[in-house]
Amino acid sequence: LSQDQINEYKECFSLYDKQQRGKIKATDLMVAMRCLGASPTPGEVQRHLQTHGIDGNGELDFSTFLTIMHMQIKQE
């Protein structure tokens, strides 16, 4: 990932990090990914979360979000 991409991801991540705690809700993951041009299915989002041990009510930090985005873009 280039620095530009990382900055773009950070900007989008921040939109969903409403309390500015450095985390977004798992329920916002799909929308955040789509905001960056990825098109994950609900099943793919579920798999990404399970891979990282996050349940549907959990939260993920930016580095986890980056990893998930990277995996998603590689497979699209």
Rank of each mutant, 00 (worst) to 15 (best):
S2H: 11
L49S: 03
F13V: 01
L36A: 11
K10I: 09
S14H: 10
V31H: 11
D28G: 02
F62G: 01
E59G: 06
V45F: 04
L49G: 01
N7V: 09
A38K: 08
Y9K: 02
I54T: 04
A26D: 05
E8C: 10
N57L: 04
E76L: 09
S63K: 13
H70A: 05
D17K: 02
M69P: 01
G58R: 07
M33F: 04
C12N: 07
Y16E: 01
K10Q: 12
G22V: 01
A38G: 10
H52Y: 06
C12M: 15
S63P: 15
Y16V: 04
L1T: 13
R34P: 02
A26K: 04
S2K: 11
Q19D: 04
D17H: 01
L36S: 12
L29E: 00
H52N: 03
N7E: 09
I6P: 05
K23C: 13
V45G: 02
M69Q: 05
S63G: 10
F13P: 00
A38F: 14
M33V: 02
G43E: 15
H70D: 03
T27C: 09
R34G: 14
I54N: 04
Y16C: 06
I68K: 00
C12T: 15
A38L: 10
L15S: 13
N7Y: 08
M69A: 11
Q19T: 08
K18C: 08
V31S: 09
R34K: 13
G56S: 11
I24C: 03
G43Q: 07
C35P: 04
R21E: 11
Y9D: 01
I54M: 08
E76F: 04
V31L: 12
E76A: 12
G56M: 15
L15F: 14
V31W: 05
L36V: 12
K18R: 08
L1V: 10
Q3W: 06
D4T: 06
I68T: 04
K25M: 13
E8G: 08
A26V: 10
K10D: 05
G56L: 08
F65M: 03
K23F: 10
F65I: 02
G22N: 09
Q3G: 09
S39C: 15
G56V: 14
D61N: 15
A32R: 00
E8R: 13
Q75H: 03
L29M: 08
G43F: 05
E59H: 02
L1R: 06
L1S: 12
K18H: 06
A32Q: 01
L60H: 00
E76R: 13
C35L: 14
K25L: 13
L1F: 15
L36C: 12
C35D: 15
M71S: 02
N57H: 15
A26G: 10
D28N: 08
Y9P: 03
E76M: 09
I24G: 00
N57M: 07
V31N: 13
M30Y: 13
G22M: 04
H70N: 03
Q5C: 09
E44L: 01
K18T: 11
A26S: 12
R34A: 12
Y9F: 13
G22C: 03
D4N: 08
D17L: 01
D4L: 07
G22F: 01
I6S: 08
H48R: 09
E8H: 10
N7T: 14
D61K: 15
G37Q: 06
T41S: 02
A32V: 13
P42M: 01
M69L: 07
F13W: 04
M30G: 15
M69W: 03
S63T: 06
D61I: 02
N7K: 14
Y16W: 10
Q3P: 08
Y16H: 10
L29C: 12
D17Q: 03
I24L: 07
I68V: 12
Q3V: 05
M30L: 11
S63H: 04
S39A: 12
I6N: 08
Q20L: 07
G56E: 03
A38S: 14
N7M: 12
G22A: 04
T27N: 13
F13T: 01
F13H: 01
F62K: 02
G43S: 15
G22D: 08
P42L: 05
D55N: 13
A26W: 04
